[in-house]
Write a protein that binds this DNA or RNA. Structure first.
Lengths: 214, 214, 214, 214
DNA sequence: AATGAATGAGAATTCATTCAT
DNA sequence: AATGAATGAATTCTCATTCAT
């Protein structure tokens, strides 16, 4: 179908980083969506922040909604699955396992730019129910299951007291999410900045205290 | 069938409701802002939900931003102050005090429609820094202080172990906020609905367990 | 048709100045139309300046355009005719007649609030051709005829040199109109205010110098 | 009838005219502002007259007011300065100088489309005081100074009688402005059109007669 | 592959006009 | 006669999307 002379078409002077573009755009879009919300983000600004023209955006994404979906999709990652492995194969104490899971959560998800996705999804879940559902299924529920599994392991091994693992996992995820949301919202206008490490240490302390067998 | 005369009684195009209008508009706006975010809310829709025309909105609010401010202002309420009283004059155990504060928080703030304000502020803090600051100063910080005071009381009376009251208060507020946000976001698309009472009971259990003196 | 008991209807508490209202409204409208132009004038403001509610305006004027027409109509007055009389019956020198006509023009038309009508008509003639035509026929042309008649009288009596009366009248009306327009436009933002008397004196001097027989 | 192929050649929805656009828009806006006044001019119409869509206007001008300012700015031109040169270096009689200045005024300012700017400024000076001030400083005052200088020159060379040059200049500018305003207002609805040349000849005659030494 | 001028539907805002009181 | 709350059409302005280059 393609004619041989196509190969002789002069190579345009740009050509570079064909692959990099979408990532740059998604990254710029992520920042702006998190900062201003979906409706509040102008594609003009996304393009400008990515250093390209507005038209270029449409070479890679059909429209604003598809860009939004891409932003969510590209940033939820398969990270969760790694944590799952850890739970299954972990050899140490359950307290240590819980500590590690939470540290991992914060390092790889909560504290990263991608953590803003949480805020975004929370704000836009009403406007994009399918995406919210997707996020719920792919991110939130898996995490709850992993953490619940770790709790259950501790109980079964006699390290933790008996609690309802699912509900416990949900509740103690609250402060983690809170911390992440805070960074992307009030954190910016609070004068004495929140010390994340101290916060996380206190949180771990609470969780483990609450799990101590009677 | 109906008497001809009745049929011809002109239905007034509108009713005079000067007193009620602003509240109705603010209420309609609250729902939509929470549901769709600031930028995603059309004033047309606000007016329609309040049962008035677009123009009427402008009789009571200078513009969209002022409406937004009014929504926030009218819904933060002075509720917090009542809780403050409770802390100061409470006679019972500190565990009971904490339980009551949390129940109050949920009943009067978290579970109410106004709880959506929290979600709204979180999403829009970047776009309205002054209002976010206001919300921080008038709602969040006071609550933290009240809860911290209750923790401190428990410690001083030997009922709780020693913890940093401020940080503890912040951390254990996480699940409360989480629950409220959930209701206005993923709650809508989660199939097995979250049982708020069970969640809160578990949370209280965790908090009190974590505070138990060694 | 009217029933006797109409007479027993309680006399409402307002009642006062039934006749005065339209004049107050027209006067307020005149000021605003002159100041802001037709389109730039809000009926709200007209009503406010007249000290009545917006609705009241519609008791007296069918709509904005009718109000505008009333403003023009009520302010062109029959003043002109008095000047006409003067020309016909004046006994003194033609120079004195011209002097009087100009002084009269300034005192009764140019310097009065109604002088703003000129500015208004100039600005809005394109939007209201019929009214412009009316103004032209009822105000401008008659004035030109009167002044031309005075010039002609002077020439015929040997007091002035021979000129084309019509064109002469038009040209020397220019400074008069200019002065009136100035008051309602740049006059407000010019720092050294224009001395109208000096201006008029110079103008009269020019006119009479130009008419001096060779 | 026409070859099918020709008929299917897609007419571009628009043409790229970045360079020409602002001038075209300003020109369209000038006509409409002069014709209908600032408030009476719809941006839709400006765009339509310039042959572009509404949105395009906003690519070049931030808002209606900026467009208005551009219209004024672009049309006052530095024409005045040429006349200034003439006064300084003119070698002939002062009467000839005055004649030339007036002819120049009419040819280059009064009779041109840009002359409508005068009408516009007069009508809108109240709504845009800063622009009016600008116009006063950049156009009106310079002209007065130039004409006054020419009068003074004549007096000093014994060609004219002694008059107050400033006031004289102001007064005799009246008919010029009048003529220009007339063209853009009543001129349109007057049946016997004003002969500008005859008017200007009469005016020059008056001015020079009035300046003749005793 | 990239651009950015142009578009036009849609949202915010204004204001002349209506009408129940 | 007077009011002023309510209306909705008209206008300004925004921004996602298109497309010739």
């Amino acid at each position: 179908m393609s004619t041989p002379h196509e190969a002789t078409i002069a190579k345009p002077r740009w050509e570079r980083r064909k692959e990099a573009r979408p990532a740059e755009l998604v990254s710029a879009a992520l920042e702006l969506f998190v900062e201003k919300g979906y409706a509040g983000t102008r594609l003009d600004d996304v393009a400008a922040r990515a250093g390209v023209s507005k038209g270029t955006l449409y070479l890679y994404f059909e429209n604003k909604e598809e860009l939004f979906k891409a932003v969510v999709r590209e940033n939820i990652v398969a990270r969760i699955s790694q944590s799952a492995e850890e739970v299954l194969h972990f050899e140490g104490s359950s307290a240590e396992l819980v500590r590690r899971l939470m540290a991992t959560w914060w390092d790889e998800y909560g504290s990263s730019t991608a953590g803003g996705i949480g805020k975004l999804m929370m704000a836009e879940s009403g406007n994009f129910p399918e995406i919210a559902r997707f996020f719920l299924d792919e991110v939130i529920e898996p995490w709850h299951r992993i953490l619940a599994a770790a709790i259950k392991r501790g109980t079964e091994r006699g390290e933790f007291r008996t609690v309802k693992p699912d509900m416990f996992a949900r509740v103690v995820t609250g402060p983690l999410v809170m911390l992440s949301l805070w960074k992307h919202s009030f954190g910016a206008c609070s004068q004495q900045p929140l010390d994340a490490n101290e916060y996380l240490a206190m949180h771990l302390d609470i969780v483990l205290s609450a799990l101590r067998p009677a």
